[in-house]
Structures are given as structure tokens and as C-alpha cells.
Design a protein around this nucleic acid. Structure first.
Length: 597
DNA sequence: CCCCCTTTGAAGGGG
DNA sequence: CCCCTTCAAAGGGGG
């Protein structure tokens, strides 16, 4: 994107994320459109192998750490109000600024379900976030009558069907979301994409928006907001009130859409809880364990904690993308399993052009910002332990396992480091060109790697980056088979192996590159602020290093014969399904999962 | 019934 | 500093 940062300063925009774009992006972009479809197919083709090792050893669990009481609620409430106000103003004034994001006129809206809860979208456990696409122009319109209409009639599909497509996406792939099917005939997307394009808020602008100060928010629109998963329609119920969205831009329109009225009034004055989409009631959805009921808490302290609403982490760029695209993928493929779908999504993600990814990074950034504003004291840690903790695998043995598995091939698994990259990259080594040794790194190389995200915005194109390899990346993907290791995180070390080169390397953003990557020290970037760390933290090495590893997809070391491995039933299932897709596409992808041992 | 699986990214803690 | 670990979403599958 365009520079998010705009020239100005916004820091915000700029930096954050590094997108991992692969360079492909550039080329890809072009390609992407056409190709996207193909790629997907290709992607699918590849076979996956998973190993899961699970282990569970988690020690921690301590989950709850710190009981510190935070003033969240209060602040939340306050924020909410502010937002509301902002909205109004917006309506009144109708301010929209053109934004770089033109294409993304989306708003986030809390799901109906959420509505129920105090309106805080996040509260609801599940449906916490809904994004609506909006047209900017419309936004201005007070009445949004039109929109309303659409919305007013709930469609059956409404909930899970993706109704609208993201404009920009559209070109990406045919798939795009919404399949027409989804829509009831009548429901055309409320907003035409084109129109929507008109403008989106500039990231830079964000800040202003989020600001506590009421005024600011108005402008924000959620760029990507719409997530297909949640339907727009849901909103109708009256409840829509979430600050979050509001913040985003809530456009009045939205509100209008939703409630038809102003949300503000909808909002219960008293509520303390904040309506951020991320908020979830104390019991986390995920955690059934609690029983969902608050009740359980025994100690006072805990109790206190419980009382606090569960605030979900803001969605990252990929998650946003997933939400958006999942339905589409599902519709295309017969696969239903999320795990399989996610794999596909992961691939697609990588195949996205940097610009496209940038959009999501941007949104994610905005969400984070907003989230931080809404919940200043919130820490991701607060949610630890709420989910069950997963076990982690343990050692990575897996690799061995994996490899050992049916495929001997080197599988990806090879121990992390060891395997040089070669394999992984094999194909593409070129890409990485980088380096041999580092090869893995190449991608991995943090330094390099990092860059990207941030860049997104700026990216725009240029990126001089050297690497060009990127493009390759995309291709690579296809052919490869995937072997995943289950666990990601930590162990990904393997990743190196697989590392996809593309992304990282390529992307380095100029900025980043120039600067340090790591944190981008902001300095450079644009700006200013290095600001907030929070905002941009991303650059971090993580991308690269740790996870970036993400080998999975890339790991292609060798193409697995389709089915190889499968040890588990599960594998079969997936594989079958996968096949489905694959078939359609062309090759089957096989997933092999390893179950826990 | 509940957790797992799977993806990428963000963030915090620990070494 | 770097690595590791969790969590975020989602939904079928498995125990």
C-alpha cells in the first residue's frame, strides 16, 4: 500500500508489520489476479503432511497470572461513549477522507450475538467480530436507508455466509468470497464495491480516529472490515453498539444499517463493559472449561479476574484474511475441516501480493491500535491460560518422525537447522539466493525478512528489494508438498527449512531494510514515532525468525506422493477431502497427520 | 463433551 | 537479543 504512512506521519501505518510479502508480490500482483486461482489449485495440490506431536506438557498453566485489577471496564465504557459520539459527528458531518485504502471500505461490526452482550462485540464469545463492507460514500449518508434495507432483511444465510466481497479482493480471485450463491438473489451486496473504493481512511489517519478523543474516530473505517464469516445481516438486531466498530468508522451508516438508528442510543448507558469486539464475557468461549460460568471462581482474586470481561486479542492480518476468505475456500473445496482450510488459506496468504497483504496488515494494525486504546491496560497475557493450553509438542522429534515416515525424503522435517535450506528451497533456492548458509535464513534472515511487513504500506511496489526471488516463491509453493509439523511455534525451527523464502526476503521493506529491522526502529520509518511499539511491533523478528519459519507450507521438500504417509485416520479424512479440492484442482493434496502419539 | 488440528501474526517471558 | 510459548478464528474429527 501506499504508503500508509503517508507521508506523514503516521507512524502508524508505516511500520508495523512486516509483511511478508514475497516479492512475488510484485509480479505476483499481476499475476495474482489471474493466477490466484491457479495457485490455489496448485496449492492444493501440494500434499500436506502433518505431524502432530503433541505433547502436552504444558507446564504452565498458570494462566492467570496477574490479577491486577485494571480499570478496564471503566475505561471501556468511556471509550465507548466517545466512540459513539464520534459516530454521531460523523454522521452529521459526514466526514470521510479519502484514503489510501480506497478499496477497503469496510466496517467492523459486532455480531449480533455480541449485541446481546452489552453490545460489545467482543464480548460475545463467538461471533465477536463482524465486519461489514461499506461504501464510503454511503457512510456519509445519514440514512443509509438503502443499506438498511438490505440489511434489514436478514437473509437466511446471513450468518455464516459471506455476503460481501471485499472489493479489492475481487480481483484477486474469482473465488472471492461470496459466492453468489450465498447471496440471496436480492441481496446484492449492499455496497457496490466500486463505490466502496472510493475511499478508505488512511492509516495515518487512524490515530486520530482511535484517539480517545471522540472526534477522531469518525473517520475510521475499517478497511477490511468485512469478514465474511459473519454476516452482515446479523447486525440488524438492534443491538449494535459497539464502540469498537464505532471506532472503526463506524459509520453511521453502519449503525444505520444495523440498527437503523444510531447506535448510540442503543447503547446502554450504563454498561460498563465495553463493547469491543474483542471482549468476551468472562468465560471465554474457548474455554468451556470454566464452565462458562463465572461462577466458578473461587478465590476472590480470581473472581475478580473473572469478572473482567475476557478481552480477546486483536486479530492479526492473517486472521483477518482467514475470516474473510474462509467461506470462499470452503465453498470451493469440499473440505470442511478447518485445519485443512487453514492450510489452504495459509498458502493463499503467501500468494497474495504484498499489496494485498498490506491491506490486511493495515487492518490488523488498526485493530491493534484500536484495541489498545480501548483497553489500555490489556495484555495478551491476560488471556493466557484461558484457552486450554495446548500442549506442546515436545520436542521436535518430530522431525525425525516425519521424515522417517513414509517419506523418507528429507522431509522437511529435518531438523531444523540442519537442513539447510537447500532442500527446502530447493526449488527455489534461487530465491533465497540468499544464502546458502543462511539460506534458510535467507528467508529467515531476520533482517531481511523482517522488513516486509512493515512495509506493506509503503511497499508499494517498489521495493527495490533485491530479492526478487520472491516471485518464485509463489510457485514454489505449489508443487510442494507440505509437511507440517504440528507445532508451530516453537519448534518451528524447522522452519527454516522450509521457510518460504519468499516472503521474507523479498519483502524487506525498504524502510526496514534500511533501518534495523528489528524493531524497526522506528526512526526511520517514517517516522516518527517509533512509536508505539505497540503499533508496530511487528517487525520483530518474529516474523522472521520464529515463526516465520513457517515452514509448513513451504516445506516442500519433496513432493510427497500423495498419500504417503498417512498414518492416521485423520489423515485420511483430510486427505480425502483434500483430494476433493485437489481433485478439482488437480492434484490431490494429501495431508498426513500424525496423531499424537 | 471437549480438545485437537491447522494457519500466520503478535506479544510477552525467559534464557 | 533470541527463542519459545500462547492466543487469536474456525469447524470437522477424534477420544
Amino acid at each position: 500500500m501506499p504508503q500508509l504512512n503517508g507521508g506523514g506521519g503516521d507512524d502508524l501505518g508505516a511500520n508495523d508489520e512486516l509483511i511478508s510479502f514475497k516479492d512475488e508480490g510484485d509480479q505476483e500482483e499481476k499475476i495474482s489476479e489471474n493466477v490466484s486461482a491457479e495457485r490455489d489449485l496448485d496449492d492444493v495440490k501440494s500434499s500436506l503432511v502433518n505431524e502432530s506431536e503433541n505433547n502436552s506438557s504444558s507446564s504452565d498453566s498458570e494462566a492467570d497470572r496477574r490479577p491486577q485489577p485494571r480499570p478496564h471496564l471503566e475505561s471501556y465504557a468511556r471509550h465507548r461513549e466517545l466512540f459513539v459520539e464520534a459516530l454521531r459527528r460523523q454522521q452529521d458531518a459526514g466526514l470521510f477522507k479519502p484514503s489510501p485504502y480506497a478499496g477497503y471500505p469496510f466496517l467492523m461490526i459486532p455480531d449480533l450475538t455480541n449485541l446481546t452482550n452489552l453490545g460489545n462485540p467482543y464480548l460475545a464469545s463467538q461471533a465477536a467480530r463482524t465486519y461489514l463492507p461499506m461504501q464510503w460514500p454511503l457512510l456519509d449518508v445519514p440514512g443509509t436507508a438503502a443499506m438498511k434495507d438490505h440489511r434489514s432483511s436478514p437473509s437466511p444465510l446471513s450468518n455464516k455466509v459471506p455476503v460481501v466481497q471485499h472489493p479489492h479482493m475481487s480481483h484477486l480471485s474469482p473465488l472471492l468470497s461470496y459466492s453468489p450463491d450465498s447471496f440471496p438473489p436480492q441481496t446484492p451486496p449492499p455496497f457496490s464495491p466500486d463505490a466502496g473504493m472510493s475511499r478508505a481512511p488512511h492509516p495515518a489517519e487512524l490515530s486520530p480516529y482511535y484517539p480517545l478523543s471522540p472526534g477522531g474516530m469518525a473517520q475510521m473505517a475499517h478497511p477490511l472490515g468485512w469478514l465474511p464469516g459473519q454476516s452482515i445481516y446479523p447486525i440488524t438486531a438492534g443491538g449494535f453498539r459497539s464502540p469498537y466498530p464505532a471506532a472503526l468508522a463506524m459509520n453511521a451508516s453502519m449503525s444505520g444499517l444495523v440498527s437503523g438508528g444510531f447506535p448510540s442510543h442503543l447503547m446502554p448507558p450504563t454498561q460498563t463493559s465495553v463493547p469491543h469486539p474483542t471482549i468476551v464475557s468472562p468465560a471465554v468461549k474457548q474455554e468451556p472449561r470454566d464452565g462458562g460460568h463465572h461462577g466458578k471462581v473461587s478465590s476472590p482474586v480470581e473472581k475478580a479476574k473473572d469478572d473482567r470481561p475476557h478481552i480477546k486479542k486483536p486479530l492479526n492480518a492473517f486472521m483477518l484474511y482467514m475470516k474473510e476468505q474462509r467461506a470462499k475456500v470452503v465453498s470451493e473445496c469440499t473440505l470442511k475441516e478447518s485445519a485443512a482450510i487453514n492450510q489452504i488459506l495459509g498458502r493463499r496468504w503467501h500468494s497474495l501480493s504484498r499489496e494485498e497483504q498490506a491491506k490486511y496488515y493495515d487492518l490488523a494494525r488498526k485493530e491493534r491500535q484500536l484495541h489498545s486504546q480501548l483497553y489500555p491496560g490489556w495484555s495478551a497475557r491476560d488471556n493466557y491460560g484461558k484457552r486450554k493450553k495446548r500442549k506442546r509438542d515436545n520436542g521436535k522429534c518430530d522431525s525425525a518422525e516425519v521424515s522417517g515416515g513414509p517419506f523418507s525424503p528429507p522431509c522437511v522435517l529435518t531438523p531444523p537447522q540442519e537442513r539447510p535450506p537447500a532442500h527446502s528451497h530447493l526449488t527455489h533456492t534461487h530465491l533465497s539466493q540468499a544464502s546458502p548458509a543462511s539460506s534458510l535464513d535467507s528467508p529467515a534472515t531476520p533482517t531481511t525478512a523482517l522488513a516486509s511487513p512493515a512495509a506493506p504500506a509503503p511497499t508499494h511496489t517498489d521495493h527495490p528489494h533485491p530479492h526478487q526471488g520472491e516471485s518464485l516463491y509463489a510457485e514454489q509453493v505449489q508443487p510442494l508438498s507440505l509437511i507440517t509439523k504440528s507445532h508451530r511455534s516453537g519448534r518451528d525451527q524447522l522452519s527454516h527449512i522450509s521457510q518460504p523464502p519468499a516472503p521474507q526476503t523479498s519483502y524487506l521493506h525498504p524502510l526496514i531494510r534500511s533501518g534495523s529491522l528489528a524493531k524497526m526502529s522506528g526512526p526511520h520509518s517514517s517516522s516518527s514515532s517509533s512509536s508505539s511499539s505497540s503499533s508496530y511491533p511487528q517487525y520483530s523478528p518474529h516474523m522472521v525468525s520464529a515463526r516465520s519459519k513457517t515452514p509448513p507450507m513451504f516445506s516442500r521438500s519433496f513432493p510427497l506422493p500423495p498419500m504417503l504417509a498417512s498414518s492416521s485416520n485423520a489423515a485420511h479424512h483430510q486427505s480425502e477431502q483434500s483430494l476433493h479440492c485437489a481433485l478439482t484442482q488437480s492434484q490431490p493434496l494429501s495431508l498426513v497427520t500424525r496423531t499424537k502419539n
